[in-house]
Amino acid sequence: MADTNYQTLNAELEGILAKLQDPDIEVDEAVVLYEQGVKLIAKLEKHLTQAENKLTKLKQNA
């Protein structure tokens, strides 16, 4: 999953959020989705941090 790009991960997260907004959702499923969501957010944050670092490096070289 580390290779998956930001867009795909983000789409996945949005899917989870949509499911979580369903009022009839089971508690168990909500927990699972929540766990998945947390993991996705961690990955997305990592992606963003990497991108920011890359940009900072490029700025220094420019």
Binding site: N10, A30, I41
Partner: peptide
Amino acid sequence: AASQRLTAHSQLLEAFSP
């Protein structure tokens, strides 16, 4: 923009926290 969106998603997810 991506970072802001992520924060918003994160907060939304937190609302569904067990």
